[in-house]
Simulated scan of single mutants.
Amino acid sequence: MTLFTTGLRRVLPAAGALALACGPQAAAAHEFWIQPERFWLSVDAATPMVLQVGTGAERQRSQLPIRRVLRFDAAAPGGEALDLRPALTLGAETADGALGFSRPGAYVVTLRSDAAAQSHLSAARFNAYAEEEGLTPALEARAARGLRAIDASERYSRQTKALIQVGEGGDQGAVVKPVGLTLEIVPEASPYALPRPATLPVRVLYEGRPLAGALVKITDLAHDAAPHEQHRTDGEGRAGFAMPADGAWMMDVVWTRPLTDEGVDFETVFSSLSFGFPAGAR
């Protein structure tokens, strides 16, 4: 049994345990990502995938409803955009969809939700969450307004990408190009290209521009109680991580902006990038 199959079966609990993805306390589980059973596929083969939320003890299958999905597509080798929405089966018993492609190379699968979900937290919980995720705009706004002792609310969206390798080699260009998300982790080298470099450099973009000071984390999904490594982006939105050699991995970043007279205090984006290697890749 591969690592990816084990990871998929881990997140198919009874329906009663799937409530974190959309309720008012959803921000307690910050991470959200696409988890295919396999990140590497043969040409014309298919793999089931699920949407996951939370890590460690909080990890479970997301309950994101189809009505909240604004986008589910793939950037193919050569730049073609493929609409994958017909492949979604959110809420089905065993998987949230399937992925399969007909040409070799690296594909960037993208899912974006709307920002209809909300989180309402006590002052202590919100302050701790903002500190943990490096949400400088929220911390500075609350301090400037004298609101650190006041409860806080946010509306938020989930925006995520997964890197799927089809066949051997092929065009890797889609991996290093932005796909137009509000908040996006863009690798500056494909983890699937050979020879594989020692460092995985990434750039974080917010509304299309480099984002400085964002806290980017990378998590080994087989040992996900805590991030494997984390760094703040520099003035050009860049950070570097040790290149993983095998297993399944998820990078994530969170950013927010203050709101005025819109019913909540902040608008937050949770963004992630998942990728992985076949068994024995090292």
Rank of each mutant, 00 (worst) to 15 (best):
Y107Q: 01
R85E: 11
Y107R: 00
S113C: 11
G91W: 02
Q118E: 14
A81C: 07
G97V: 01
H120W: 13
P77A: 06
L88D: 02
G78I: 09
A117Y: 03
V109T: 03
G100Y: 00
A116Q: 15
L111I: 08
Q118C: 07
A87L: 12
Y107N: 00
T89R: 15
G91E: 12
P77F: 12
A116N: 08
G79W: 11
G78T: 10
D73L: 14
A98P: 03
G97K: 13
A76I: 02
L99I: 05
A74H: 02
H120P: 02
L111W: 02
L111N: 13
A116W: 09
A116C: 03
L99H: 00
E80H: 10
S102R: 15
P86C: 08
G79M: 12
A95L: 09
L99C: 04
G105T: 03
G91A: 07
G105Y: 00
V109D: 00
T89P: 02
E93Y: 11
A76G: 05
G78P: 07
F101Y: 10
A87R: 14
A106K: 05
Q118M: 11
S102I: 03
P104A: 11
A75H: 05
L88G: 12
A81Q: 13
G79H: 10
P86K: 09
L88P: 05
L82V: 14
L90Y: 03
V109K: 00
D83I: 09
A95Y: 09
A81M: 15
L99N: 00
L121E: 13
L90E: 13
P86Y: 11
A76F: 00
H120N: 12
G79E: 15
L111H: 04
A98N: 07
T110M: 03
A117W: 04
H120L: 10
D96S: 10
A116G: 15
S113Q: 08
G78D: 06
L88C: 07
R103F: 00
D96H: 06
L99F: 03
S113R: 04
L111C: 12
D114Q: 03
A116R: 09
L90I: 13
T94D: 12
A87P: 03
D83S: 09
P77W: 10
A106T: 15
L82T: 04
G91H: 05
G100M: 07
L82P: 03
A98F: 14
V109L: 02
T94A: 14
A106N: 10
A106R: 09
S113I: 02
S102H: 14
S102N: 10
R85G: 04
A95R: 14
A74S: 01
A98L: 07
L88A: 15
A81G: 05
A116M: 09
V108F: 01
A74V: 00
G105Q: 01
A115G: 13
G79I: 10
D114L: 04
H120D: 13
S113F: 07
Y107W: 02
A74G: 02
S119T: 15
A115C: 05
A75E: 05
A95G: 08
R112G: 04
G91P: 04
R85D: 09
A115F: 08
P77G: 12
D83L: 10
S119E: 04
V109Y: 00
P77L: 10
E80N: 08
P104T: 02
A81S: 14
A75I: 01
A81T: 10
G105H: 01
A76V: 05
A92Y: 10
T110Y: 03
D96A: 13
G105W: 00
D83V: 06
G78Y: 12
L111M: 14
D73P: 09
A76P: 12
P77Q: 03
A95H: 15
